[in-house]
Amino acid sequence: MKDEWPLFEVFVRGKRGLNHVHVGSLHAADERMALTHARDLYTRRNEGVSIWVVRSSDITASTPDEKDPFFQPSGDKVYRHPTFYDIPDDVPHI
């Protein structure tokens, strides 16, 4: 849909000396808007905190709990897509 904004993951460093930590996600049309929204939503505009945003689709993730190749197709994306599970109940052993 052309009125839907992509998903961004937000990482915040609460104060100097700490790592950036993943705090959640949000929707934005582009990186700049994602930063503005992240500042509003996750830091309540607390100045001095550092924010990273990255498109969720740009993250490559490892799969520690998925050793069986059958479960590989969700691939390296940060979230599994549930359509992978959209297997009708009445189709045995596909």
Binding site: K2, D3, E4, W5, A29, D30
Partner: peptide, 9 residues
């Protein structure tokens, strides 16, 4: 509004 922002991006 959402469409416009997506189009601009």
């Amino acid at each position: 509004v959402r469409e416009a922002a997506a189009a601009h991006a």
